[in-house]
Amino acid sequence: NITNLCPFDEVFNATRFASVYAWNRKRISNCVADYSVLYNLAPFFTFKCYGVSPTKLNDLCFTNVYADSFVIRGDEVRQIAPGQTGNIADYNYKLPDDFTGCVIAWNSNKLDSKVSGNYNYLYRLFRKSNLKPFERDISTEIYQAGNKPCNGVAGFNCYFPLRSYSFRPTYGVGHQPYRVVVLSFELLHAPATVCGPKKST
């Protein structure tokens, strides 16, 4: 009989979030998941669920729940959905087409922007091929755009693959930082360890 609440607040209220290319994953298990708490945590810009209804979450049980978190800019949030393409979905964080879970995003301009520009958040701009779903690539190998090998040196047709967002508070919403948490629900042929409040007794 599990009584402890799932530590969603640790994920959502973390002081620092990860850069999207090096997104963070927390496995959540053996706890009571009260998803209604999430609705009250922040004024969400996005709370979209796929393959599951957000209002039914509190009635369900899962084997595992994974919470992935990272920062992107406002106009990239739409890429965090099944079947999307674009720089983020292709080279940084890719959801599977049959994704079961929820994408939660909110504006973090007050936390993640600086007047002089916050350069701490990076994204991958160049990659030889698209990522597979939930693949994480943290390599910093020089990207070869031409025929000549780069031998690890940046220059003509040889690019450092990561680029930094420079978040400034005066930017338009599309270029402001957004914190994203992706909850993916895993149903294996194994005992369910993460249940809503109704199912945990």
Rank of each mutant, 00 (worst) to 15 (best):
N157M: 02
L95Q: 00
V194W: 10
L122K: 15
P177E: 00
F47G: 07
R16Q: 15
A18E: 10
L5E: 12
G172D: 00
P7K: 14
T3N: 11
L38H: 05
V153T: 14
R179F: 00
L95R: 03
A190K: 13
V180P: 00
D9P: 09
E135F: 05
V32D: 09
V182N: 00
A18N: 13
T193V: 11
Q84I: 09
L188M: 14
P133T: 05
R127M: 03
I80T: 02
N107A: 05
A105S: 14
G196A: 12
V65K: 05
Q144A: 10
L95Y: 02
V194I: 11
T85H: 15
E186V: 08
D97V: 11
S116C: 06
F134T: 06
F45A: 15
F126C: 06
C150I: 00
S129T: 15
D137S: 04
L125C: 13
V32T: 13
K128A: 12
C150S: 00
T193Y: 13
D112C: 01
F134H: 10
F99T: 01
I72D: 00
R136Q: 10
T140C: 08
S184M: 09
F17I: 06
A22E: 12
L57P: 07
F160V: 14
V65M: 14
C49E: 01
D9E: 13
Y35T: 10
G146C: 02
P191H: 13
V11P: 04
H189S: 15
V181E: 00
S19P: 07
H189F: 09
V180Q: 01
A33Q: 08
N92K: 03
K199G: 15
N64I: 15
V20M: 00
R78S: 12
N58F: 08
G172T: 00
L111G: 07
K148R: 13
F44W: 14
L60Y: 14
P161C: 03
D75Y: 07
A67H: 04
N92C: 03
C102K: 03
G83T: 06
S129G: 14
K94Q: 05
E76P: 02
Y66D: 08
V11D: 05
D68E: 02
N157F: 03
C150Y: 01
Q79R: 05
A67K: 05
E186P: 08
N147R: 07
V181Q: 02
C6G: 06
A145S: 08
P82F: 02
F45P: 15
T63F: 08
R168D: 00
L188A: 15
L41Q: 14
V37H: 12
D112Y: 03
K128C: 08
S200P: 13
S184I: 09
E10K: 11
L122Y: 10
H175M: 01
Y39I: 13
N30A: 09
I142M: 12
F12K: 05
T193G: 13
H175K: 01
G152T: 07
W23Q: 02
T55K: 15
V153G: 11
K48G: 05
K148Q: 13
G74S: 03
F8N: 05
D68C: 03
V37K: 14
A33R: 07
P191Q: 14
Q79I: 03
E10Y: 07
A190R: 13
P169A: 05
S19V: 02
N120E: 13
N130R: 15
P54R: 15
I2A: 14
V194Q: 12
A81M: 06
F160M: 12
Q176R: 02
S184V: 12
Y93F: 06
D112W: 04
N109W: 04
K128S: 13
T63L: 09
Y50L: 02
R163F: 15
S36V: 06
S116L: 09
H175W: 15
S129H: 12
N24Q: 14
Y50I: 05
G101C: 01
T100M: 14
A192I: 13
D34Y: 06
N40I: 07
I138R: 08
D98K: 11
A154F: 05
L162C: 03
I88E: 00
L131K: 02
L162I: 14
P7A: 12
S19D: 04
C6I: 05
V37F: 15
D112L: 04
E141T: 13
N92Q: 02
F62Y: 12
R78G: 11
Y159H: 05
H189P: 13
A81N: 05
D75W: 06
P169T: 04
S53R: 11
F17E: 03
S184N: 13
P169C: 03
F17A: 04
T85S: 15
G86C: 02
F45M: 15
F8W: 11
V37N: 12
K148I: 13
D34L: 06
P82R: 03
A67N: 00
T15Q: 12
N64A: 15
C6Q: 06
S29K: 11
R25S: 05
R25C: 00
Y159W: 05
L111E: 13
F167C: 00
H175E: 01
P191F: 09
L95C: 04
F70S: 01
I138D: 12
Y91Q: 04
Y159V: 01
P82E: 01
V32W: 11
F126M: 10
S19Q: 04
R27I: 14
V181W: 05
T63P: 09
N157D: 04
N13Y: 10
N24R: 14
Y171K: 00
N107S: 05
R163V: 15
A145P: 02
L187W: 11
P54V: 14
Y123L: 15
W23R: 02
I142Q: 05
D112K: 02
S164N: 09
K56E: 13
N107W: 02
F160A: 13
C31W: 06
W23T: 02
N157G: 03
D59C: 08
L57D: 10
G196W: 10
G152C: 06
A22F: 09
G117H: 03
S29G: 10
D97Q: 12
Y123C: 08
T201E: 13
N58Y: 09
C158N: 01
D68R: 04
C158Q: 02
R78N: 10
N40T: 14
Y21G: 01
G152R: 10
C195Q: 08
E135D: 09
L38C: 06
A81G: 09
C61Y: 08
T85E: 07
E76G: 03
N92Y: 01
Y165R: 01
P133R: 04
S36K: 13
F17G: 04
D97K: 13
Q79T: 05
S129V: 12
Y159S: 00
Y159R: 02
P161D: 02
G152W: 05
E135L: 05
V180L: 06
K56V: 10
L131F: 04
C6H: 06
G174F: 05
N118M: 05
E135Y: 05
F156R: 07
P7F: 08
H175A: 02
V103Q: 01
F126T: 04
D90K: 14
L131S: 02
Y21I: 04
Y35P: 10
S113A: 11
G172K: 00
D97G: 11
L95F: 03
I72M: 03
Q144H: 06
G146F: 03
I28F: 15
I28M: 15
L5P: 15
D59E: 15
P133I: 04
N147M: 07
N130W: 08
Y21D: 01
S108G: 04
N13D: 07
N87L: 15
A67D: 00
G146E: 01
K110C: 06
A154V: 11
R78H: 10
Q144I: 06
Y121V: 05
N4I: 09
L162H: 03
V153K: 15
F45W: 14
V115N: 10
L122P: 00
G152N: 12
P7Q: 13
G146Q: 02
I28G: 06
R27C: 09
Y143Q: 02
N151L: 12
R136C: 05
S200A: 13
T100D: 06
T100P: 01
V181N: 02
L57R: 07
N1D: 11
I2G: 14
V52G: 06
N157E: 01
F160N: 14
L122R: 13
F134M: 09
T100W: 09
V182S: 03
L131T: 04
F167P: 00
F134I: 04
A33G: 10
I72F: 00
K56L: 10
Q79W: 03
G155E: 06
N58L: 08
V180H: 03
T46I: 13
S29R: 12
D137G: 03
C195N: 07
L38D: 04
F185P: 06
L95A: 02
G146R: 02
K56A: 12
S116G: 15
T63Y: 10
V52T: 11
Q176H: 04
D97M: 13
A18D: 08
F44Y: 14
